[in-house]
């Protein structure tokens, strides 16, 4: 080995490489998005020739992604922390229904928002307590909660659709500060807050530690149980926010709302690079995962294609994303390098 082989900047390389891996994965998802838009242009060239339509359609996609996006942020935390939350859709439903009962609506918009958030957080907290202190597997505990919370939502609503008569709530979906729907602003705030929480706070560091190696975290003095409980409460909080967003969009709430959100949220987190076994994941990737799904939905809608085909395509994308993950992005990274 010669004496000139050690450049001083060499040590910083690996960190950059790791960043590359995440960035590359996100870049891949952006590529998929672009591909989907190109497919849209090819199939509907007349629509895409109208700039106003393009802009509005773009905002529609974002708006459709907003509620599920907020749920996915919470889900991503839970999965990075080594758990899974199958009850998110049901929590959205119970929070939505509870906040739109006649009694709650009588307290005004503030009361409704407060109720949705508290109900969501408390139900998440119950999940968390059962999992962390009752030592239930999160899959089982949240599966039970998924069934039970939908049941309670149906009970409260008497299986009826509850119309929201509160104009402030109903206006959330139609308000457009700076030309962008308020729902998209909410998504942006939640995503940024989630990113900061995961990457810049002790809470985020604990999440990665607890999910990556719970025993190591415990032996380092981290209160693993309490943290696990908090993660599920966080997921519940996100569901509460999403419940308000959905209620506002539909100007109503019902026990069947947010159906299968758990599957969409898990799928979005996974294709965004979150490891199902915990310990690794990114908020930005999860956001791109959500956007891919809502763009597909949009693409099928503008082409008037049935949802069955759409679901088949979604399933294929999930499988493809996980397969790529298994091949490990490193090999791809090297491919791109040269």
């Amino acid at each position: 080995m010669t004496t000139q082989t050690a450049p001083p900047e060499a040590p910083t390389k690996p960190e950059r490489r790791k960043l590359d891996e995440n960035a590359l994965r996100n870049l891949g998802l952006v590529g998929v998005l672009i591909l989907l838009i190109i497919v849209g242009i090819i199939t509907k060239p007349d629509l895409y020739s109208d700039p106003t339509w393009v802009k509005n359609n773009f905002l529609t996609i974002l708006q459709q992604a907003s509620a599920i996006g907020v749920v996915t942020v919470g889900m991503t935390f839970v999965i990075i922390g080594g758990g899974i939350d199958l009850s998110v859709g049901a929590i959205v439903a119970i929070a939505g229904v509870w906040s739109t009962t006649l009694a709650t609506q009588s307290y005004g918009a503030g009361g409704m928002i407060f109720t949705a958030i508290i109900v969501g957080t408390v139900v998440g907290l119950i999940n968390g307590v059962l999992i962390a202190y009752g030592k239930l597997v999160s899959f089982i505990a949240t599966l039970a909660m998924m069934v039970a919370a939908r049941g309670l939502a149906a009970q409260i609503s008497g299986k009826q659709t509850q119309i929201s008569t509160n104009s402030t709530i109903n206006d959330i979906a139609s308000t457009r500060p700076l030309g962008i729907p308020l729902l998209v602003w909410i998504l942006a705030v939640v995503v940024i807050a989630g990113w900061v929480l995961l990457n810049r706070t002790t809470f985020g560091r604990r999440t990665v530690a607890v999910g990556g190696n719970p025993e190591a975290a415990r032996l380092a003095g981290i209160n693993v149980k309490r943290h696990t409980m908090l993660l599920f409460a966080l997921s519940g909080l996100c569901c509460g926010i999403a419940a308000i967003m959905l209620t506002s969009q539909a100007t109503s709430a019902q026990a069947a709302m947010a159906n299968l959100y758990e599957l969409d949220a898990i799928a979005a987190a996974i294709i965004g690079g979150t490891l199902l076994s915990g310990g690794r994941g990114t908020i930005v990737g999860a956001l791109f995962g959500v956007l891919v799904f809502s763009t597909i939905t949009n693409l099928f809608a503008i082409n008037n294609l049935p949802t069955e085909v759409q679901n088949m395509v979604k399933g294929g994308i999930i499988v493809a994303a996980v397969l790529i993950q298994q091949f490990r992005f490193q090999s791809l990274t090297q491919l791109f390098k040269r």
Partner: peptide
């Protein structure tokens, strides 16, 4: 299995008990 987060950088492993 009991002490390390293998995919995390060295410094985060070193501060696992003290990052707070």
């Amino acid at each position: 299995s009991q002490a390390l987060l293998l995919d995390e950088p060295i410094y985060k492993n070193m501060t696992l008990a003290s990052f707070s």
